[in-house]
Amino acid sequence: MALLEIHDLHASVEGHEILKGVSLTVNAGEVHSIMGPNGSGKSTLSAVLARRDAYKVTGGTVLFNGKDLLEMDPEEAACEGVFLAFQYPVEIPGIGNAYFLRSAMNAIRKHHGEDELDAMDFLPLYKERMKLLEMDEKFMNRSVNEGFSGGEKKRNEILQMAMLEPKLAILDETDSGLDIDALRIVSQGVNAMRGKDRAFLVITHYQRLLNYIKPDYVHVLVDGKIARSGGPELALELEEKGYGWAEADAPQAQPA
């Protein structure tokens, strides 16, 4: 059984159809990259998978681990193992990072009938993962993302991913706005998480990120549909020829 099976997914935002029949199958252990020009529906796809209310599904099915993902609330999807690293992580003044993350971990543990982590169990793990992302411990008690630089916010997203250990991690343009150093650190965090039980959907506009996070498959999303699918070489070709090439003369996409 595939981890994620998307079949003919249609979705709209404020009455505009954005996704016009996306089909995609992702198995555990795989890294899929979804590339595409602005407005092609990349972020909509990630928002639908994370179950954001404002995105209305108008057709198709999504199975996650054999369960109907489209029936789930965002919190259920999170507890089942879907994680979205936000393109624009939200600032939450007044809520400390450590408290927030421990509460999130405990919500997920509770869902699985596991005991809550206390601060003693949580902190050593948190500090260790912070080191991996080269984050200062002072971030622990600061409010979630408040006053963080763009790069710090993205690192914080990957830190959360590393702690929550999802089955499916969706990285929504995690590379946007990152300098090379931050890109290296973030990628290092992601690569450390790769494994046979976990899959990644790496959504990006640019090929650059894929030098650091090597995908197994690359899909090109154009106007709400997957126009091309292929191996890592597709990203390079795209970089060279531009999205115009992918749009024109698109062969029928092959589900991976």
Binding site: R51, E75, A77, A78, P89, V90, A104, M105
Partner: peptide
């Protein structure tokens, strides 16, 4: 949504 996407109930 951010909180819910991390597992917090509404």
């Amino acid at each position: 949504f951010y909180l819910r996407s991390r597992g917090f109930t509404l």
